[in-house]
Design a protein around this nucleic acid. Sequence first.
RNA 1: GGUGCGGUAGCCAAGUGGUAAGGCCGGAGUCUGCAAAACUCCCAUUCGUCGGUUCGAUUCCGACCCGCACCUCCA
Length: 486
Amino acid sequence: MPLRLHNTLTRAIELVTPANADGVFRMYCCGPTVYGPSHIGNFRAFVVQDVLRRALEIELGAEKVLHARNITDVDDRIIVQTQTEKRSLAEITAHWSGLFHADCRALNLLPPHYEPSAVEHIPAQVALIERLIFHRHAYRADDGSVYFDVSTYPAYGGLARLDFTALRKQTTNSAGEANLADKYDREAAADFALWKARKPEDGSNYWPSPWGEGRPGWHIECSAMIEKIFGGQTIDLHGGGIDLIFPHHENEIAQSCCAHESEPGYSFVRHWFHNAHLLLEDTKMSRSLGNLYTVADIQKMGFDPVVLRYVLLTAHYRSPLVFTQNGLEAAQSALHKLDKHLLALALRATGDAAKTKETLLRLKKSSPKALRWGRFATAWEVLTDDLNVPGTLGEIFKVEPKAATVEQAKEDLEGLLKITVGVLGLDLPLPETKILVPDEIVELAKQRWAAKQAKDFAKADALRKELSARGWKSLDRKDGYDLAKE
RNA sequence: GGUGCGGUAGCCAAGUGGUAAGGCCGGAGUCUGCAAAACUCCCAUUCGUCGGUUCGAUUCCGACCCGCACCUCCA
């Protein structure tokens, strides 16, 4: 079955296919604003987009997918930081984007083919704003800021399906606060900034423009970078968190469509792909609320990032997902189970325990598209229905790791690797975790093993209790033992 | 208030007009001195509530209750 996905624009499940004659699928995803650590809720979006990309590469071939994800490195909050921390914008954004990339690697995210920076695309943004002013979709305010005139784009609100006549009359926002329209020098509350005029508190963070010094507004960067990277043609898919539907993506549509109004039939994006949020105790995880966890926090809790990746995939991408410690533990156990299935199939396929590791490594290095599905074809079928990852996981576990024949084991081994590592990006098996054992624990364990060898079970049991009191346990084998934390 | 999404076992979570996938936890057993690991088996007469349509609804329709999100900082 070809891949089908929910499209926010039409609210329907649609086939995702490349529109262009070259057969290349072009996707753009809104990336992080690098003013602080990215949290695991941010990564839900990037993990989901990564699975989509991998699925597209399976379907179309890796060379037929182009993926762009921007870095927002100019923004009000970053500029405030340059002043409070007395560091340059470049210094701050380099620091946080470096950490972001490290987290991406830890989560096994494929690097995008393009990773444009907003600061590096200021001329492209200025050029786009000029086009909008030329076509009378934007106006310069007295202070030198430029705003998009929403009233010139009748289709505005189409993505979010908001009623703008009602919205304009609204005098309070969701929190019951007064509408902030008057704070800005714009003609209508719905108008949004394309260019923000320089203010004294901006420090050295301003750029020249035909309207005076200042900096670009947020929404224009994506429109400009998409234009630049993909040559102004319609792109196949645009992704982001559900919170970006309005106003960010709504505004992008308005900007890009108005800039192209001289081209009849122009469409900006064919398919809009939005994921629901990660929640913490029924509340959205967000930087402003301060209720966030980072990838580093998860590692400090003793979990490998692949466990987090699994957790982020346990709910369908359009459903909210509540993050809990319990969820991490369940994910770790489930991954362990998959790991066992993988080893069982590899052992059967190779018939030789010594060869399994080497075989697994070799298969993992090969292109996922080249691998066979075996009995995991149904898992893929389920995935193609709107990226139903929970359903896919169910299908994966339904396949008994006992293959009927060696040939089937070989095929299944490829299939299991293809779906888990190749599509879901769950890089199994789990790396063996190295644990530091205190000397006193090592000594107690030695004594216990000696007592056990001497068949002094009373002493051995007493020592096991000693170990337990210190939080450790001995896992005995025939020829020795391992130590583990209880 | 407007708009949208959702309420499925102890927890997480798919799904379908024909009688409930899967994961975690838990229980029983096999095997080991013990413990663990591993393996086998068990674990929702029921899908928020109340009505309706239907031979039949968890699945469709209506009402209601509850939760979450968005309504110009947000992945």
